[in-house]
Measured scan of single mutants.
Amino acid sequence: ESETFDVELTKNVQGLGITIAGYIGDKKLEPSGIFVKSITKSSAVEHDGRIQIGDQIIAVDGTNLQGFTNQQAVEVLRHTGQTVLLTLMRRG
């Protein structure tokens, strides 16, 4: 069981404050995608409180990250504006 949710964030001096990890899993058993690996102290993400380590980032400002490499996803996140809309999925 999984839930998908949107989080809109405004960057602070730390930026968004997440590091991400790309993961290619076994299609049947484990998900592939871009996941939140860590959250920086005092960052926008930590202050917001809704995003957790292990959440999958589905889209950034409407750009679907399906099939993106870790590096491609980093580039998408790097080129966002001051306000960012993240679409995430959390597995229950």
Score class of each variant (00 low, 15 high):
Glu1Ile: 13
Glu1Lys: 13
Glu1His: 05
Glu1Arg: 07
Glu1Leu: 09
Glu1Phe: 14
Glu1Met: 14
Ser2Asn: 11
Ser2Cys: 10
Glu3Trp: 13
Glu3Tyr: 15
Glu3Ala: 10
Glu3Ser: 11
Glu3His: 14
Glu3Gln: 13
Glu3Met: 13
Thr4Tyr: 09
Thr4Asn: 04
Thr4Ser: 09
Thr4Ile: 15
Phe5Ile: 07
Phe5Val: 04
Phe5His: 01
Phe5Pro: 01
Asp6Gly: 05
Asp6Pro: 02
Asp6Phe: 08
Asp6Cys: 11
Asp6Thr: 15
Val7Cys: 10
Val7Trp: 03
Val7His: 03
Val7Met: 00
Val7Gln: 00
Val7Thr: 04
Val7Ser: 00
Val7Gly: 03
Val7Lys: 00
Val7Asn: 01
Val7Glu: 04
Val7Ala: 06
Val7Tyr: 06
Glu8Ala: 10
Glu8Arg: 13
Leu9Met: 06
Thr10Tyr: 08
Thr10Pro: 05
Thr10Ser: 08
Lys11Phe: 01
Lys11Trp: 04
Lys11Ser: 07
Lys11Cys: 08
Asn12Tyr: 05
Asn12Lys: 08
Asn12Val: 05
Val13Asn: 14
Val13Ser: 15
Val13Met: 15
Val13Ile: 15
Gln14Asn: 15
Gln14Trp: 09
Gly15Ile: 03
Gly15Thr: 07
Gly15Lys: 12
Gly15Met: 05
Gly15Phe: 04
Gly15Gln: 08
Gly15His: 06
Leu16Lys: 01
Leu16Ile: 09
Leu16Trp: 08
Leu16Gln: 04
Gly17Asp: 01
Gly17Val: 03
Gly17Ala: 03
Gly17Glu: 06
Ile18Gly: 02
Ile18Leu: 11
Ile18Cys: 05
Ile18Ser: 01
Ile18Gln: 04
Ile18Lys: 02
Ile18His: 00
Ile18Trp: 04
Thr19Lys: 11
Thr19Phe: 02
Thr19Ile: 08
Thr19Asn: 11
Thr19Arg: 11
Thr19Met: 08
Thr19Gln: 14
Ile20Asn: 01
Ile20Phe: 09
Ala21Lys: 11
Ala21Met: 11
Ala21Thr: 15
Ala21Val: 09
Ala21His: 13
Ala21Ile: 06
Gly22Glu: 15
Gly22Ser: 15
Gly22Arg: 15
Gly22His: 14
Tyr23Phe: 11
Tyr23Trp: 10
Tyr23Asn: 15
Tyr23Gln: 15
Ile24Glu: 14
Ile24His: 15
Ile24Asp: 15
Ile24Val: 14
Gly25Thr: 13
Gly25Met: 09
Gly25Arg: 10
Gly25Asn: 12
Gly25Cys: 15
Gly25Gln: 11
Gly25Ile: 05
Asp26Gln: 13
Asp26Phe: 09
Asp26Trp: 08
Asp26Arg: 09
Asp26Thr: 11
Lys27Ser: 15
Lys27Gly: 14
Lys28Glu: 14
Lys28Phe: 10
Lys28Ser: 12
Lys28Met: 10
Lys28Gly: 13
Lys28His: 09
Lys28Asp: 15
Lys28Cys: 13
Leu29Asn: 15
Leu29Val: 12
Leu29Lys: 14
Leu29His: 13
Glu30Arg: 06
Ser32Leu: 15
Ser32Phe: 07
Ser32Tyr: 10
Gly33Val: 04
Gly33Thr: 04
Ile34Asp: 00
Ile34Cys: 06
Ile34Tyr: 10
Ile34Asn: 04
Phe35Asn: 02
Phe35Met: 02
Phe35Asp: 03
Phe35Tyr: 15
Phe35Gly: 03
Phe35Lys: 04
Phe35Arg: 09
Val36Trp: 00
Val36Glu: 09
Val36His: 04
Val36Ile: 12
Val36Gly: 01
Val36Cys: 04
Val36Thr: 00
Val36Pro: 01
Val36Leu: 02
Lys37Asp: 12
Lys37Met: 05
Lys37Phe: 03
Lys37Tyr: 04
Lys37Cys: 06
Lys37Trp: 02
Lys37Gly: 07
Ser38Lys: 11
Ser38Trp: 05
Ser38Tyr: 07
Ser38Asp: 10
Ser38Cys: 09
Ser38Arg: 12
Ser38His: 11
Ser38Phe: 05
Ser38Ile: 00
Ile39Trp: 03
Ile39Leu: 06
Ile39Asp: 00
Thr40Met: 13
Thr40Asn: 12
Lys41Gly: 07
Lys41Trp: 03
Ser42His: 15
Ser42Met: 11
Ser42Tyr: 12
Ser42Asn: 15
Ser43His: 06
Ser43Gln: 06
Ser43Trp: 04
Ser43Cys: 09
Ser43Tyr: 05
Ser43Ile: 08
Ala44Gln: 09
Ala44Ser: 13
Ala44Pro: 13
Ala44Met: 12
Val45Gln: 11
Val45Tyr: 06
Val45Asn: 06
Val45Ser: 09
Val45Lys: 09
Glu46Ala: 09
Glu46Asp: 13
Glu46Tyr: 14
Glu46Ile: 08
Glu46Leu: 07
His47Leu: 15
His47Trp: 07
His47Glu: 12
His47Arg: 15
His47Ser: 12
Asp48Trp: 05
Asp48Ile: 04
Asp48Asn: 09
Asp48Arg: 07
Gly49Ala: 06
Gly49Lys: 06
Gly49Thr: 07
Gly49Trp: 00
Gly49Gln: 06
Gly49Arg: 07
Gly49Glu: 06
Gly49Asp: 08
Arg50Glu: 05
Arg50Met: 05
Arg50Phe: 03
Arg50Trp: 01
Ile51Met: 03
Gln52Phe: 07
Gln52Gly: 06
Ile53Thr: 08
Ile53His: 03
Gly54Met: 05
Gly54Glu: 01
Gly54Val: 00
Gly54Asp: 07
Gly54Arg: 02
Asp55Trp: 01
Asp55Val: 02
Gln56Val: 05
Gln56Asn: 03
Gln56Thr: 04
Ile57Met: 00
Ile57Cys: 03
Ile57Phe: 02
Ile58Gly: 02
Ile58Asn: 01
Ile58Leu: 13
Ile58Cys: 06
Ile58Gln: 04
Ile58Phe: 02
Ala59Gly: 11
Ala59Thr: 05
Ala59Arg: 08
Ala59Asn: 04
Ala59Asp: 02
Ala59Ile: 02
Ala59Met: 07
Val60Pro: 00
Val60Ile: 14
Val60Ser: 00
Val60Thr: 02
Val60Trp: 05
Val60Arg: 00
Val60Glu: 02
Asp61Gly: 05
Asp61Arg: 01
Asp61Ala: 03
Asp61Thr: 02
Asp61Glu: 00
Asp61Lys: 00
Asp61Ile: 01
Gly62Val: 01
Gly62Pro: 01
Gly62Tyr: 03
Gly62Cys: 05
Gly62Phe: 00
Gly62Ala: 03
Gly62Lys: 11
Thr63Pro: 00
Thr63Ile: 15
Thr63His: 12
Thr63Trp: 03
Thr63Leu: 12
Thr63Cys: 13
Asn64Glu: 12
Asn64Cys: 12
Asn64Pro: 14
Asn64His: 10
Leu65Phe: 08
Leu65Tyr: 00
Leu65Thr: 06
Leu65His: 01
Gln66Met: 11
Gln66Asn: 09
Gln66Cys: 11
Gln66Trp: 07
Gln66Ala: 14
Gly67Arg: 07
Phe68Arg: 09
Phe68Gly: 05
Phe68His: 09
Phe68Asp: 02
Phe68Leu: 11
Phe68Cys: 12
Thr69Glu: 05
Thr69His: 04
Thr69Val: 02
Thr69Leu: 00
Thr69Trp: 00
Thr69Pro: 05
Thr69Ile: 02
Thr69Asp: 09
Asn70Leu: 14
Asn70Gly: 10
Asn70Thr: 15
Asn70Ser: 14
Asn70Gln: 15
Asn70Pro: 13
Asn70Tyr: 15
Gln71Thr: 12
Gln71Pro: 08
Gln71Met: 10
Gln72His: 08
Gln72Pro: 01
Gln72Thr: 06
Ala73Asn: 00
Ala73Trp: 03
Ala73Gly: 05
Val74Met: 12
Val74Gly: 07
Val74Asn: 14
Glu75Pro: 01
Glu75Gly: 07
Glu75Val: 00
Val76Pro: 00
Val76Glu: 05
Val76Tyr: 10
Val76Asn: 04
Leu77His: 02
Leu77Phe: 08
Leu77Trp: 05
Leu77Pro: 00
Leu77Gly: 01
Leu77Tyr: 04
Arg78Asn: 12
Arg78Lys: 13
Arg78Cys: 06
Arg78Gln: 11
His79Lys: 14
His79Asn: 08
His79Asp: 15
His79Ala: 15
His79Val: 08
Thr80Gln: 02
Thr80Pro: 04
Thr80Asn: 00
Thr80Ala: 08
Thr80Cys: 09
Gly81Val: 01
Gly81Arg: 08
Gly81Lys: 10
Gln82Asn: 12
Gln82Lys: 13
Gln82Met: 07
Thr83Asn: 11
Val84Leu: 06
Val84Met: 05
Leu85Glu: 08
Leu85Asp: 04
Leu85Tyr: 08
Leu85Gly: 09
Leu85Gln: 13
Leu85Lys: 13
Leu85Arg: 15
Leu86Ser: 00
Leu86Tyr: 00
Thr87Trp: 00
Thr87His: 04
Thr87Gln: 06
Thr87Val: 05
Thr87Asn: 03
Leu88Lys: 00
Leu88His: 01
Leu88Arg: 01
Leu88Phe: 08
Leu88Ala: 04
Leu88Ile: 14
Leu88Trp: 01
Leu88Gly: 04
Leu88Cys: 12
Leu88Ser: 02
Leu88Glu: 00
Met89Thr: 12
Met89Lys: 14
Met89Gly: 09
Met89Glu: 10
Met89Gln: 14
Met89Leu: 13
Met89Pro: 02
Met89Ala: 11
Arg90Tyr: 02
Arg90Pro: 04
Arg90Ile: 02
Arg90Ala: 03
Arg90Asn: 05
Arg90Val: 02
Arg91Met: 08
Arg91Lys: 11
Arg91Asn: 12
Arg91Gly: 12
Arg91Tyr: 09
Arg91Cys: 09
Gly92Gln: 13
Gly92Phe: 08
Gly92Trp: 10
Gly92Lys: 12
